[in-house]
Simulated scan of single mutants.
Amino acid sequence: MRIGELARATGVSVRLLRYYEEQELLAPGRGAGGQRHYPAEAVTEVARIRTLLAAGLPTRVIRELLPCVLGDGPEVDVCVQDLLRERLGDLDDRIAELRHARTLLGELLDASVRAAA
């Protein structure tokens, strides 16, 4: 299928599909005129990429993970589970920092309201 067909099938813009290719997340074949041609499995690959992006993974990490994805689902080989655990720990740390910042901001607002009353 051509890039426009893949875009329609996945709901992802042509521009974003080209970006995925630049990041080495997708590897289309090329026709005689240089046009991109994607296999039918590219629809699943794009869905997988979108899921990994939504999970907060940067494209460089996704590039490492893609060869380790098992089947059509979100399961990954045991060889990358440590990397995912590390990323999950990073997210937990960021969430804790945001909760702390939210608490401090709430206290500041409460103090400001009390002072104004």
Rank of each mutant, 00 (worst) to 15 (best):
M1A: 11
M1S: 12
M1C: 03
R2C: 00
R2Q: 13
G4P: 08
G4Y: 08
E5W: 02
L6D: 04
L6W: 03
R8T: 09
R8S: 11
A9I: 04
G11A: 10
G11F: 11
V12N: 10
V12R: 10
V12K: 08
V14P: 07
V14N: 04
R15M: 02
R15T: 09
L16S: 15
L16H: 13
L16Y: 04
R18Q: 12
Y19L: 15
Y20A: 12
Y20W: 14
E21P: 05
E21Y: 09
E21D: 15
E22P: 11
L26T: 04
L26R: 02
A27W: 01
G29V: 06
R30L: 08
R30N: 05
R30M: 02
G31A: 14
A32M: 03
Q35V: 08
H37G: 00
P39C: 02
P39T: 10
E41F: 02
E41N: 06
T44I: 14
T44Q: 14
T44H: 12
T44F: 06
E45M: 11
A47I: 00
A47L: 11
R48N: 01
I49C: 05
I49S: 06
R50G: 03
T51P: 00
T51E: 13
L52E: 01
L53M: 05
L53P: 00
G56E: 07
G56A: 04
G56R: 06
L57G: 04
L57H: 08
L57Q: 10
P58D: 15
P58K: 14
T59K: 01
R60K: 11
R60D: 15
R60I: 09
I62N: 06
I62E: 04
R63H: 14
R63I: 07
E64K: 13
L65C: 07
L66H: 03
V69C: 15
V69I: 15
L70G: 01
G71M: 13
G73K: 04
P74D: 14
P74E: 13
P74L: 14
P74Y: 02
D77N: 12
V80Y: 09
V80A: 10
Q81Y: 03
D82F: 01
D82T: 09
L83W: 02
L83F: 01
L84N: 04
E86Q: 07
R87M: 10
G89Q: 12
L91V: 14
D92I: 08
R94T: 06
R94D: 12
I95Y: 00
I95F: 01
L98W: 08
R99L: 06
H100C: 04
R102H: 10
T103K: 05
L104C: 08
L105S: 02
L105D: 00
L105K: 04
G106D: 15
G106Q: 13
L108N: 02
L108K: 06
L108V: 03
L109Y: 05
A111S: 10
V113C: 08
R114P: 00
R114K: 11
A115G: 09
A115C: 07
A117V: 10
A117E: 13
A117T: 10
